[in-house]
Design a protein around this nucleic acid. Structure first.
Length: 204
DNA sequence: TTTACGATCTAT
DNA sequence: TAGATCGTAAAT
């Protein structure tokens, strides 16, 4: 099922900032009902260790954030705002809590399943937010701690587009207004405009 | 046990 | 711009 180019743990076992940038253009793949459901990662954010006061790990290791303290290449899926699930990929060495939040994807495969998962919502709003894409790909607490460097969990990331440095935008992370400086303004959000990417716009 | 607050989304 | 909605971690 096209699993030959699954990204391996070496990719994730690096500085979280680098991984967050390099995940742009990669393909997030979910297998549901035996069908590939996928999208190109178009927006990410890096959360970097206990000193980063926007990171869940700032309070130390807890039951909730324990996965972040584990090996790179695992899914850290957390529940927030009483109703939403968000997907992160753990990076860096064991016992260093860092992860990349996947904030948006551009749908590519399994559009019927995405439409079914998202209900009667405008197509452009299917997966343009961290809790929207988990809804679209049916990701929840069952995927927390999952090894995404293997195909058997039905969730992984494949190499795909290469995004030019000129097309990468950066800025402060979203939704952390109460986080102290300098962490509130660190430019650790990465994204690219999908329509600028040749080959991708035709598929959108 | 109680409280305050979210790494958000949606309708208004 | 505000309401939904509840797990989590710290305070009581």
């Amino acid at each position: 099922m096209g699993e030959s180019n699954i990204i391996s743990s070496e990719f994730y076992d690096r500085q979280v900032i680098e991984v967050a940038r390099d995940l742009l253009g990669k393909r997030l793949v979910r297998v549901l009902y035996g069908v590939r459901v996928s999208g190109i990662i178009s927006e990410t954010e890096a959360y970097d260790g206990m000193q980063d006061l926007a990171c869940h790990a700032r309070v130390g290791k807890t039951k909730r954030n324990a996965v972040m303290f584990g090996n790179a290449g695992r899914a850290y899926v957390y529940f927030t705002y009483g109703m939403h699930w968000c997907l992160n990929i753990v990076t860096g060495p064991k016992d260093y809590p860092a992860a990349v939040l996947i904030r948006a994807i551009q749908p590519q495969e399994g559009l019927e399943i995405i439409e079914m998962s998202r209900g009667m919502i405008a197509r452009k709003n299917w997966t343009n937010g961290p809790a929207k894409l988990t809804q679209a790909l049916q990701i929840n607490q069952l995927q927390n701690g999952l090894d995404i460097t293997r195909p058997d969990g039905n969730l992984w990331i494949e190499s795909s587009l290469v995004i030019n440095e000129n097309d990468v935008k950066t800025g402060p992370r979203i939704g952390i207004a109460n986080t102290p400086k300098p962490w509130r303004s660190m430019p650790w959000r990465f994204w690219f405009e999908a329509t600028q990417q040749a080959g991708l716009e035709q598929k959108l």
